[in-house]
Amino acid sequence: MPLIQIHDVSVRYTSPVLSGIDIEIEEGEFVCVLGQTGCGKSTLLRLILGSEKPASGRILVDGIEHHQPDRTRGYVPQKYSLFPDKTVLDNITFGPEVSEFNLFGRCTPRFYRRRRELRAQAFDYLRRIGLRAEDARKYPDQLSGGMQQRVAIAQALITRPQILLMDEAFSALDPGTRRDMQQLIRDLWQATGTTILFVTHNTREALRLGTRVIVLARESAGQGSRVMLDLPVPEPCHEHEIPRLIDRLETVQAVA
């Protein structure tokens, strides 16, 4: 059974956003979602998270319909991804701390022992995402955009979610950092086997990262977006194939 099943899902706000979306995603896939701005990519992620309900259709994750986000589906949002009131370290350890200890559990000695372990683990993650140990004490607004994104990824990964949903996680980064981050996320994906859904604007990035690329687009103005193309990315993807694939992906996006 596919891990994520999206059956004939439609969403409308003032006008239709998504209509008749059918997607099935197997465990361990790395799916990139492409589409023009406003076509409903973030909405699709919110549907899978369960923070939003479709007007019609069903979304099953592991065979269950979810009505609320929970820790099986990690999330790196487009913006506001870190808690501004917590240091980098506390942002990373927030997940395990909050799921293992309730408000009162934090007063026990066991909590402090566990926190020491978690902090050690967080430092390990910090090193893996390429931050220095002295950044751990900083607050999010003292970090650059790229560093914030890295911390947000570490924060989501430390809870070991079954599925990771990333919304334009790298779009604010310069090309160099972007490449590093792509490598990082690809390595993490290979190491953990997490199923990843990665939303992006960047066709080249989608091809470099994904094992499969889905393109959302409207057939005509006033209609909801549909899946216009669902393309497995050949692995390994040869350099000479990339221009042809990019061309194909970009033509499809530009229909409407």
């Binding site: 998270l49 949002p77 506001y80 808690f83 927030f94 799921s99 809870t159």
Partner: peptide
């Protein structure tokens, strides 16, 4: 995003 994020972290 902040509340959704917190829920996905297990809060």
């Amino acid at each position: 995003e902040q509340t959704v994020k917190a829920f996905t972290l297990g809060a």
